[in-house]
């Protein structure tokens, strides 16, 4: 695997002020609360976690769709927050996003051609070049060229996601954040899209940040995987290592909770007690301690450091 850094995230935080009304108590949701990780060139880094863990917020922060509260994001060695608005819009061609919901991510009143062309128009490409690029992109994602004048509602979910992928590829980005790109699709279609994403990466060599809640899909597609819980990264390692040798008790529980489509599979299930705490009032210390089967007294007080335990295997837990 390449070891050249593409995206470097340091102490990234995003806090949302959700106090409503003027006189209510201030209420802050710490959606992302101190992330440190690196995405290397050419790899696929998977991010998994349950709802409210901050994985989508992380993707949006990297895409500069949200302003961070604290920390730095370096892209290709440059601090993204140092870019002016104009500079940012110019640089956006290098990092693009594939969205979860192929029904909501395409403007219903634009035809396929306009949708795919839009980033090229924004980047100032001329018309002839754009038309040719659309033809190539449609071919790349497997949409027949004579569908280019159609509207999104004439396509199925899988085909719409292909259009969304073509749009993300339009400017030949280096980095693609895929936020739950197959979650809204049926199983048989999911596999088509996953294969497409893998093929495109092989052909064009870009880097993925693959955000999903489906652990088996993430394991399949990722080189490395990070596990998030309540705005924090609790574990990160090479994909196979993580799935075979999970160190954090949350990762262990999460992996064992996934129903396996195999009747001979032995479920040695770690059933977690309780629910995910609300991120506007996270527990003190390690956020996982109220549900953790091995929590000790000090887990309630101090947040464990995110440390390298084995080579390339990071975990944030006192008891490991």
């Amino acid at each position: 695997m390449a070891t050249e850094e593409l995206v470097k995230v340091k102490n990234l935080r995003k806090h949302f002020d959700v106090s409503n009304g003027l006189f209510r108590k201030k209420s802050i949701v710490k959606a992302v609360d101190g992330l440190d990780f690196t995405v290397y060139k050419g790899e696929t880094l998977g991010i998994v976690g349950e709802s409210g863990c901050g994985k989508s917020t992380t993707g949006r922060l990297l895409m500069q769709l949200l302003d961070k509260t604290e920390g730095t994001i370096e892209f290709d060695g440059e601090d993204m927050s140092a870019w002016s608005k104009k500079e940012l819009n110019k640089r956006r061609k290098d990092f693009q996003m594939i969205f979860q919901d192929p029904y909501a991510s395409l403007n219903p009143r634009m035809i396929v051609e306009e949708i795919i062309e839009e980033p090229m128009v924004a980047a100032g490409m001329d018309k002839q070049e754009r038309k040719e690029r659309v033809t190539k992109l449609l071919d790349d994602v497997g949409i027949p060229d004579d569908y280019r004048k159609r509207y999104p509602h004439e396509f199925s979910g899988g085909q719409r996601q292909r259009i969304g992928i073509a749009r993300a590829l339009a400017l030949k980005p280096k980095f693609i954040v895929a936020d739950e790109p197959v979650a809204a699709l049926d199983v048989s279609i999911q596999a088509q899209i996953i294969n497409l994403l893998v093929d495109l990466q092989e052909e064009y060599g870009f880097t993925y940040l693959f955000i999903a809640h489906d652990l088996s899909v993430v394991q399949y597609i990722s080189d490395r995987v990070g596990v998030m819980y309540l705005g924090k990264m609790v574990e990160m390692s090479e994909s196979d290592e993580l799935y075979e040798n999970p160190l954090h008790p949350y990762t262990q529980a999460l992996l064992s909770s996934v129903p396996v489509p195999d009747v001979h599979h032995n479920t040695d299930r770690v059933l977690l007690e309780g629910e995910i705490p609300s991120p506007d009032n996270p527990p003190s210390g390690c956020p996982f301690h109220p549900r953790c089967p091995i929590a000790k007294e000090h887990c309630k007080e101090t947040m464990p450091e995110f440390r390298e335990r084995n080579k390339g295997h990071y975990v944030a837990c006192h008891e490991v």
């Binding site: 819009n89 956006r92 996003m97 909501a104 991510s105 924004a122 980047a123």
Partner: peptide
């Protein structure tokens, strides 16, 4: 708050254009 607005932003489309076109 639609995703296609986010998509347009992530592609560097200007505010004015987002208002008129999307």
């Amino acid at each position: 708050s639609s995703l296609y607005i986010d998509a347009a932003k992530s592609m560097g489309v200007s505010n004015r254009k987002i208002m008129w076109k999307h």
